[in-house]
Structure formats: C-alpha cells, structure tokens
C-alpha cells in the first residue's frame, strides 16, 4: 500500500480567452476564472482510482500558490483526495514561481510525508513548461515515468505505458517513483455533491515555502509575453483563373 502525493496547479480556465497585459510582463489574471490544470485533474483521478483499487493507502494533494489555491485543493479533495497541503506563495514571489521551485517543494514534501509515488500533470496549460515531474524525480533520485497513459501495479513496482512520438512505450519501474499524467490516462470524474460537502471537512494544512527550506529566488527572467500574430483576413476571388494566378504570385504552386 502506497501513499500518493499529487501536485495540482491553479491555472486560468481553458474556456477563458487569455489576454496579455499591456506592459507585456505576463497575462491578465485579475478577475479571471481559474480552475485546476486539466492534466493535474487526470493525475488526481489516477491517484483516487489507485486508492479505490486499494493500491494506495492515502492520497495527498499539494498546491503552491496564493490563498485561492485552496479552492483548487478543495476540488481535489472533492474528487477523492484524503487531505491537502497548501504551500503558501503569494504576491511577487508567486509571479516568479518556477518549475524548479515547485519540484523542490514536492521533493521535500514527499520525504516529509513518506510518499511512495508522486503524480503530477505532464504540464500546466498556462506556462506549458513540462519540467516539474522530471526535476522532482531528479531531486529525489527516484525513477520517473513521464507522459503516462496507463499504469499497472506489478509485483516489483509499476508497469507504465508512455505516450511517445508515433507510438507507445512500455516500461517497468520500481517504487518510489514520479509519474506525469498524459491526456489519455483516464477521464476525470465530476466531483459529486455529497463529496463536495465531505471535502469541506477534510484536513488542509498550510505551510510556507521557507519552512520547507526552499529558496524561491527566480532562475528565469521573463523578458516579454506577446500575443500570437493575428491571422490575416482572406479574400474572395471571382474565378478559378484568378485563384491560380494569385497562388502563383504568392509562390504556392
């Protein structure tokens, strides 16, 4: 029976249109709807399923961020996590929080909580870094299974199917290990009302990053955030000949 630690990040909801700040220092987050990173939802779902199959004894959800990160943790608890740890990072520090910091926090908490498995989403949909799982595994010196689309318990550890370019790769790993969840791993459940109610009573611990001994000095500096180029408007041509002429003109044929 393993204890599973799941990392969950609060990100701008994927149905919201993201706007770049006028000073190009980042994107507008004030008054914008946030929700749990969809890949982290898959990670939580997998951990909860492990618990339901009695492969895991306890599921702990962790989130690093300002007070609102607790909403994301409540969602994880409503999905079935047993308890939550909120690592409080706010203000300027949160703006420059980077995967290396989160990895250090997750590594430290894994040791403190005696976790056997860390599961995170393969990437967050806001910064698309895809680094946290890999860095966490390196810091702990544990094996890693990234882009996981299937996990099975075997005698010695886990058999993992990974999504790789043009196919699937099956690997075996011992535990403890770090996994990162890919899209096809599972379809996350909706938190049901009784579980949403129960989640309100589940324990949530608040800690500060510096209590975990993690230095939050930024390692990367964001120079500029820009909108993707706007697609040019098309035009209607009267007939095929003009179309062909235009295509030739543009060097397309």
């Amino acid at each position: 029976m393993a204890r599973v630690l799941v990392g969950v990040k609060r990100v701008i909801d994927y149905a919201v249109k993201v706007r770049v700040k006028p000073d190009k220092s980042g994107v507008v987050t004030d008054g914008v709807k946030h929700s749990m990173n969809p890949f982290d939802e898959i990670a939580v779902e997998e951990a909860v399923r492990m618990k339901e199959k009695k492969l895991a004894s306890e599921v702990i959800a962790v989130s690093c961020g300002p007070a609102q990160a607790q909403e994301t943790l409540r969602t994880a608890l409503a999905m079935g996590a047993d308890r939550a740890i909120h690592v409080e990072v706010a203000g300027k520090e949160y703006e420059t929080l980077q995967p290396i910091h989160v990895a250090k926090i997750l590594a430290k908490l894994s040791q403190d909580e005696k976790a056997d498995l860390v599961i995170v989403g393969k990437q967050a949909i806001d910064d698309d870094s895809n680094q946290t799982a890999q860095m966490t595994a390196a810091l702990l010196d544990w094996p890693q299974g990234t882009f996981v689309s299937k996990v099975e318990k075997t005698d010695a550890g886990l058999t993992i199917t990974r999504e790789i370019d043009g196919g699937l790769e099956t690997i075996k790993t011992k535990i403890p290990a770090v996994l990162s969840a890919d899209l096809r791993l599972n379809e996350p459940r909706y938190a049901t009302l009784p579980n949403i109610m129960k989640a309100k009573k589940k324990p949530m611990k608040k800690v500060a990053a510096k209590d975990l001994g993690v230095d939050l000095t930024p390692r990367i500096k964001v120079i500029s955030v820009e909108d993707p180029p706007v697609r040019q408007a098309g035009s209607v041509v009267p007939d095929v000949d003009t179309l062909v002429a235009k295509l030739k003109e543009g060097g397309h044929v």
Partner: peptide, 24 residues
C-alpha cells in the same frame, strides 16, 4: 439550498461547478 435539498431527498446526486470549461 443544495444541502437542504439533498437532505430532503429531492436531489439524489449531482455535481456543481463554477469552472467555465466544466460548465460548458
């Protein structure tokens, strides 16, 4: 409202969200 209606049995089960993507 929801706790009351769950208790009275008018609602058997359900889910509630304010996340735009889930609402959609």
């Amino acid at each position: 409202f929801l706790s009351k209606e769950m208790e009275s049995g008018h609602i058997i089960d359900g889910t509630v969200t304010s996340e735009p993507a889930k609402m959609r």
